[in-house]
Design a binder for these strands. Structure first.
Lengths: 232, 232
DNA sequence: ACAAAAGTGTTCGGAATACACCCATGT
DNA sequence: ACATGGGTGTATTCCGAACACTTTTGT
């Protein structure tokens, strides 16, 4: 047993951060899970995370743990919710501040270890029973991105640099869990003027090749300052 | 010095909850502040809150502190955000989970102590410099209710049982910080069918007396289940 | 009679929706 | 030639925005 040398007048819960990382592979929405090496919930899957250091802000802690456990770095994360039910961790009272992020799978899939490792992408509808209360965490995170994608073009975070309009539509359909009309979707998404049509098409596809587009980040930043509104 | 008898292997931040409570007096949007009795920030105003007990969930802690410090009870609160910058509390690392709520001023103004006490309602545009990072907390809370009132009829939480359409409109205008067209506002708010017109009018007003309405809570609950959408 | 806020309808333009066929490519 | 998904336009409906006068009360 290690020495317990940090003492306080009143009891304190332990504080952790966890990250829900969403990715998209042009087909399926996925989340990044790690397999726990130790008890509690040894060998079960969970969101990457861990204890916050004493002089580290919450967001930094979340990013650090994410990097340590999965190799992902330079990720833009946002705070989602704080879970603190007594009893959610069998080791004692643990309060977890949850962050979430959307990443381009293509940027990261190498590091995360495809399946042999202990960090893996799971399709959103093939998630195993998770450790702790992470099922509830996932539910909350899905709710958040659904709400968010409708009025902010966060979808681009999930796609590669170059993408086709069908890929983008597919992404929206997967996140919102409903189908969208192709012509109306294109009309609306193009009307934002946030897409730049590239002089490049798909290759080696057995149908009319789709044009690639990229997201106009600069323009989006400008619009944000002016109080941008948008609605899928 | 008290004995420090709670010891851990690793250092732990202290955990607190605070509440941002909004009220509305038919005229002005207000928030409930308490005046701190002790250092740090002795005599400065802050949101009510305090340390979380070890076996208490976060929401319960927030409500308990709110009751102890202001007398408010039976308040429906929602989690807003967690603040945890090192240095935000001069006593050491403190992480605060912030909750917010909207309450009917009429239900509560007695308990809170009008001005002599150490809990007071402050008009939103007459807030003093607050303790800790509570300025940032308030900013975040205002952002949240602005975003929320547009697509959820939370305004009713702030009004008395019976209210006039002008009061309701005034509330929306104060929260959104913009004026609304009277006819369009009424059309839209009535089209939700969530208001019940009462057989009762204002009295002793030097103009055409306004009709009172009340909010149809049952119907709203039903609509929520069916996935209600609405937009001011 | 006057002041003050309540209450009420219509018009117009733009956005949302619904909908079907031709195009370019690989096999 | 055929199968596959890409790409495109129009008509209709619905919703948001703009806008001004009459009503009821107290003084």
């Amino acid at each position: 047993m290690r020495e317990k040398k940090y003492c306080y007048e009143y009891p304190r819960p332990a504080l952790t951060t966890d990250c829900v990382i969403f990715g998209f592979d042009s087909e399926k929405l996925k989340v990044l899970l790690i397999q726990r090496k130790f008890d509690p919930f040894k060998n079960q899957w969970a969101f990457p995370g861990g204890f916050v250091d004493m002089n580290e802000n919450l967001e930094t802690a979340a990013k650090r743990e994410l990097y340590e456990e999965t190799g992902l770095e330079n990720v833009y994360i946002e705070q989602l919710f704080t879970f603190g039910e007594p009893g959610r961790d069998p080791r004692g009272r643990v309060v977890s501040v949850i962050y979430y992020a959307l990443v381009k799978l293509s940027d990261y899939k190498i590091h995360a270890g495809d399946d042999a490792g202990d960090a893996r992408w799971f399709e959103i509808d093939k998630i195993p029973k998770l450790a702790f209360d992470h099922d509830k965490v996932l539910e909350k995170a899905l709710e958040r991105i659904k709400g968010k994608i409708i009025y902010q073009p966060i979808g681009f975070e999930l796609l590669p640099e170059k993408f086709t309009l069908s890929q983008l539509q597919n992404l929206y359909e997967k996140i919102l869990e409903k189908t969208l009309d192709k012509r109306n979707f294109r009309k609306k998404i193009l009307s934002t003027k946030l897409l730049i049509k590239l002089d490049e098409k798909e290759q080696n596809v057995a149908h009319k090749p789709a044009n690639f587009y990229k997201f106009n980040t600069e323009k989006y930043q400008e619009l944000l300052k002016k109080g941008f509104e948008f609605q899928i």
